[in-house]
Design a binder for these strands. Structure first.
Length: 888
RNA sequence: GGGCGAAUAGCUCAGUGGGAGAGCACCUGGCUUACACCCAGGGGGUCGCAGGUUCGAGCCCUGUUUCGCCCACCA
């Protein structure tokens, strides 16, 4: 010990700044696939390269890093692998915006190649900001293994996956209806559609004239799509319309005709007019009707949802204009039959909120059914388990009803689809290596313009990052990974797809365990969003409270399956806890200055020493169990409770007597214990607050063989400390006595400076022995002038009374010190409470059914309570009588 | 239309069959030589509602109300 003094108050900024580089320099994060020991692997859910740290990241990092640090300290061969996602559409939009703002150019002005070059430049300059932010949080990631989904290595994996699936017939190209965003001008998968419910809209009725006279009235929320109608459907059994099936309708605004068809699947005769206009090229249901009846597909919108030439006089209009003009034209012709308010559901673009247009377009798809079956089986047979368990149902339901996955996007930034078309012979070539010419006719080729859905490459992440398709040592040592920790919001987007891809391509599950954390909300439970203005910035919090406090807060609030309502007061509270730890460290280091730490316990451990070691053992069990079961709240709170309310509140105070005293044996024992429990406490807390614990641990006296960093030190394991029930009972008794005296002092208003004489009557010899052993501690902690313990006798006149454990009487003389009336009221209250409790117990014991059917142990326990409460009560009554005597 | 979750102290939440808990807030008293980011003491709850199972229910079952989320192609 160099005698260096700590600052009085804890300043997280200074402490937290100094350790990350230290850990890096000493290679503390580095994984080695050849190392012995069970593997424990977490690959980070890759944040977007464009991303800035938000609360969700802070939570995910807190949980993952706590698990990784814990297992690393337990001796596992850990790998925590970092990396980022190229995030196709998001990144492209960011760079496009910057391009527009800085140079007034669109991506089309630049052209594809130069634009992609710009995105790379942007990524190099601004892209990895989030990595530095992860370091601020203390994430113990192995940066030498950092990956990016567009790296050459991962691009190779994407190519391998695509070609393999294509060869197996699991990737195909087809022209069908797809959700298309007219603003992003790209197709989207079903998952990227944001469903908006209960939108206030309008339902219009209008009449279609029938060829040869008559009309049929249809209802619609999208009148403009009538420009693309190719049928009106009615129910085949509907007597109103049966006769009309097969007749033709004359399009009132365009020069064409189309039929009335009977379709029992689409049409509900009870809804609206019972006749439905059919637009096969812009509605998913109508598309199916079109297939069933061989109807014409008439796309009326281009990829920006502007009406095309087929709309004749209505060409060149956006969707809203087209609606207005069509309604006007129908009105002029006297065909409008009414309108009414109607609530409906709409699909919007997840990214830009634009109303999606179902559009007919050729896209690439993954045939998901066979993949989903494997993913389902792996969860059913337990190769992968999902926590919280409630999410298993959600996972299964989605996979059981899965639709084919549209993986092509009309973007520039992303993995280009490895398909080449020959305009000469019309073939499509999909290969691992770029083909120089058409393998069919030798003619020139053009590559598919589209890129892959970002989630396609994300789906390969657990193995592409480990070198797949090459059989690397990493893949062999670390696949399947151990835990996939992420938010439940991307269960379908990501988790389910990794399961499908990993099982199919690598042949084993990508992870043994899925742990899905909840969403972070504001203190009122609302989603954080820029528009609401309720976003809490984790970096702002770390700046003001420290990363340790933020991490500890998130860990303590992380209850399985629940969203987290985050209020700043929590963080402030755990900031105070950091200060508490700091000061406990300060005290300890002050006491241990110049002391050399023995490797094994010295003789003469006091009761207090043995007691705190017992409490430590229980904390060790709870923290390990909590972490093992992904109950971070239980683990962190167990460590918190031990450190503050057992170590600081009681042990530190009790240790002062031997530490300050002149008995060298007692002093040595106290120093040893103090050092040991603080060390162990820091280890238990380290997964949650890595910086502060490292700072203090580094200053503690070292043992030979100690590693360079706390993060490499051994995590306390259950069963290494002997339990000492006698010490625990003795100290607990003393605590109860001290608590009773303090309560009397406080409630009766005994002046703080007063040092009253305490008399204890304890009929049991065991109690007297225990109290004698704790004599000095009781005197100090209860601030007494003297303490006398006797088997029994007369209570001093005018004393306050409390009873501990049924028979131990606490007698504190108050005559002439305070108003005895106050004590009288206090006693009455205590008696009332005890009576109430006793009545409850007696009621139970008076029930024959309870005696007959409850387990013997439970009955025995209640009998014990009855006796203790009864004894307490009679002693309190005696005290009351005596007090009334003194008053009367 | 299905599925899921929540409802416990003023607030935020733990507590999966036997004595209602934590943190914050509140009240009282204390600058006691680690810490006022602290210490000690205290007040405060018919555990959403109604039934049921059980010797015993905050916890299990049924129904119900309110709130939230997810999934779903009703014009």
């Amino acid at each position: 010990m160099d005698g260096e003094l700590l600052e009085k108050g804890y300043e997280p900024q200074a402490v937290e700044a100094r350790w990350y580089d230290f850990w890096m320099e000493h290679g503390c994060f580095a994984a080695d696939p050849h190392r012995p020991g069970p593997a424990f692997v977490i690959v980070i859910p890759p944040p977007n390269v464009t991303g800035v740290l938000h609360m969700g990241h802070a939570l995910t990092i807190t949980i993952q890093d706590a698990l990784i640090r814990w297992r690393r300290m337990c001796g596992d061969n850990t790998l925590y692998l970092p990396g980022t996602d190229h995030a196709g559409i998001a990144t492209q939009m960011v760079v496009e915006r910057a391009l527009k703002a800085d140079e007034g150019l669109s991506r089309h002005d630049l052209g594809r190649g130069p634009f992609i070059e710009r995105v790379w430049q942007w990524k190099e300059r601004h892209g990895n900001r989030i990595n530095d932010q992860l370091k601020v949080l203390g994430a113990s990631l192995d940066w030498d293994r950092e990956r990016f989904t567009m790296d050459a290595l991962l691009t190779r994996a994407v190519r391998e996956a695509f070609v393999t699936l294509h060869e197996q017939g699991l990737i195909y190209r087809d022209a069908k209806l797809i959700n298309f965003c007219p603003r992003c001008t790209t197709a989207l998968s079903d998952l990227e559609v944001r469903h908006e419910e209960n939108v206030a809209g309008t339902m219009w009725d209008f009449a279609y004239p029938l060829e040869g006279g008559g009309e049929i009235v249809v209802s619609t929320t999208r009148p403009e799509t009538m420009l693309g109608d190719s049928a009106v459907a009615v129910h085949p059994d509907d007597p109103r319309y049966q006769a009309l099936i097969g007749r033709r309708i004359v399009h009132p605004l365009l020069s064409r005709t189309f039929p009335v068809v009977g379709d029992a699947i689409l049409v509900d005769p009870a809804f609206g007019t019972g006749a439905v206009k059919v637009t096969p090229a812009h509605d998913f249901n109508d598309f199916e009707v079109g297939r069933r009846h061989g109807l014409e597909l008439i796309p009326i919108f281009d990829d920006r949802a502007v009406t095309t030439a087929v709309c004749g006089a209505f060409a060149g209009l956006d969707r809203d204009e087209a609606r207005v003009r069509v309604l006007a034209a129908l009105g002029e012709q006297g065909l409008l039959r009414g309108e009414r308010p109607h609530t409906m559901a709409l699909g919007r673009c997840q990214r830009c909120a634009t109303l999606l247009e179902p559009t007919l377009s050729p896209q690439w798809y993954v045939r998901t059914k066979p993949l989903a079956e494997q993913a389902l089986a792996a969860v059913e047979d337990g190769r992968t388990t999902i926590l919280p368990e409630s999410q298993v149902k959600v996972y299964k339901h989605w996979l059981e009803n899965i639709q084919d996955w549209c993986i092509s996007r009309q973007l520039w930034w992303g993995h280009r689809i490895p398909a080449w078309y020959c305009d000469g012979c019309g073939t499509c070539t999909v290969t691992r290596e770029d083909p120089p010419c058409c393998p069919g006719c030798g003619g020139p080729l053009r590559q598919d313009e589209d890129v892959l859905d970002t989630w396609f490459s994300s789906g390969l992440w657990p193995f592409s990052t480990l070198g797949w398709p090459a059989q690397t040592p990493e893949l062999q040592a670390y696949y399947p990974t151990t835990v996939m920790e992420t938010g439940y919001d991307i269960l379908f987007f990501w988790v389910a797809r990794m399961m499908m891809m990993g099982l199919h391509l690598v042949g084993d599950v990508p992870f043994r365990r899925v742990y899905l954390h909840g969403m972070i909300r504001d203190s009122r439970g609302e989603k954080m969003s820029k528009t609401r203005g309720n976003v809490i910035d984790p970096l702002d919090l770390t700046a003001r409270y420290g990363s340790d406090a933020l991490r500890f807060t998130l860990a303590s609030l992380a209850v399985q399956g629940r969203d987290i309502k985050l209020a700043e007061e929590w963080i402030a509270g755990y900031r105070a806890f950091c200060n508490k730890i700091w000061n406990a460290g300060r005290f300890t280091l002050g006491q241990l200055a110049g002391w050399s730490r023995p490797a094994s316990p010295p003789p003469g451990l006091s009761l207090a020493d043995r007691w705190i070691l017992g409490r430590l053992e229980r904390a060790i069990v709870a923290v390990n169990e909590g972490l093992a079961n992904f109950k971070l709240n239980e683990a962190s709170l167990a460590a918190y409770h031990f450190f503050w309310h057992e170590l600081c509140d009681w042990y530190l105070e009790m240790s002062k007597a031997p530490l300050y005293g002149d008995d060298p044996v007692a002093q040595q024992a106290a120093r040893y214990t103090l050092c040991h429990v603080l060390d162990a406490g820091l280890r238990l807390l380290h997964p949650f607050m890595p910086f502060l614990t490292e700072e203090l641990w580094q200053k503690l006296p070292r043992l030979p063989g100690d590693p360079v960093s706390l993060m490499l030190a051994r995590f306390p394991q259950p069963g290494e400390l002997p339990l000492d029930p006698e010490a625990e009972e003795t100290v607990e008794l003393a605590h109860e006595v001290i608590g009773a005296v303090r309560a009397i002092r406080s409630e009766c208003g005994v002046p703080p400076a007063a040092r009253p004489a305490l008399l204890i009557h304890a009929p049991a010899e065991t109690s007297r022995r225990r109290l004698a052993a704790m004599h000095a501690q009781i005197v100090t902690q209860a601030r007494l002038g003297s303490l006398e313990v006797a088997a029994g006798g007369e209570a001093p006149r005018g004393s306050a009374k409390a009873v501990v454990g049924g028979t131990v009487e606490i007698l504190l003389p108050l005559l002439g010190v305070v108003d005895l009336e106050v004590e009288l009221a206090r006693l009455h209250k205590g008696i009332g409470k005890t009576e109430q409790e006793l009545a409850g117990v007696r009621k139970k014991l008076g029930n024959a059914d309870f005696l007959g059917r409850a387990p013997a142990a439970v009955v025995e326990k209640e009998r014990g309570r009855e006796q203790e409460l009864g004894e307490t009560l009679s002693r309190l009554h005696a005290g009351l009588a005596r007090l009334q005597q003194a008053l009367g």
